[in-house]
Design a protein around this nucleic acid. Sequence first.
DNA 1: ATAAACTTTATATCTAAGTATAGAGTCAAG
DNA 2: CTTGACTCTATACTTAGATATAAAGTTTAT
Lengths: 136, 136
Amino acid sequence: MKENLTIGAIARTSGVGVQAVRYYERRGLLLPDERKESGYRIYSREAVRRLRFIKNAQGLGFSLEEIGRLLRLSVGHKRQCARVRKQAQKRLEIVREKIGALQAIEKALQRLIRTCAARGTTWPCPILEGLGEQSR
Amino acid sequence: MKENLTIGAIARTSGVGVQAVRYYERRGLLLPDERKESGYRIYSREAVRRLRFIKNAQGLGFSLEEIGRLLRLSVGHKRQCARVRKQAQKRLEIVREKIGALQAIEKALQRLIRTCAARGTTWPCPILEGLGEQSR
DNA sequence: ATAAACTTTATATCTAAGTATAGAGTCAAG
DNA sequence: CTTGACTCTATACTTAGATATAAAGTTTAT
């Protein structure tokens, strides 16, 4: 039983849209293994793994651009682990920065809401007033 | 000395682009107080405050859509503090969710990097392997 | 054999928050 | 009075990651 993984098949098993798979191909991330005479794309199970790689990496916040770089690092006969780790570390730093920024926002919102609650439902609304302030 | 705040003036003092100010106007967030016969927009200092409001709220993660809603809540003679607080609380929850999601990503990246470091610069690269796994 | 389901390419559209450009008019200084 | 800086409108373009649509061809099931 020769496997005939069409684009619809790998899309379904990976939970992405058919259009998205073609889009990844245009971005150079996922080439079909073969084309039938009809032009239909045929994929191997390795391609499914690759597609999963793309989705997992996306889930970790990697952009398709970065994912492309990771995939290109992985194809040479010499797998360049150090560079991959560097990428992952860079991504980790960015994630940590984002967390920090969001925590600052969290604090600012908490402060606004606390002020509002302390005053009760009065006028003028301290949230709106506070947001109109000159920021330092 | 009558103030003639042109679009360039309020843009400069608020640190936004002239185009952006016009864009906010199209979005219904910031109308000029007046138009000269020439069609030039003229703003009051109140408009500068409003523009600061927009930028501050953006800094807290509010979208222009949400900011528009906040501004509309603030214009009625009866300022609806409760609704504003509700919006801010909703925003706070979203921020907290984002923080949680990013912390999960942080952990996953840390794990990948740890595995990689433990193995040294070997083959196959555990980060790339890990990213190709079926996720649960 | 035919209908349903699938695939092909190419092109357009979406979101968000703007930025860029063109062509024309206006304002202030020297 | 001219130059340069500014403004006007309208339209197009940007990023990122897709999704939607059209018009045509293919495969599979009955």
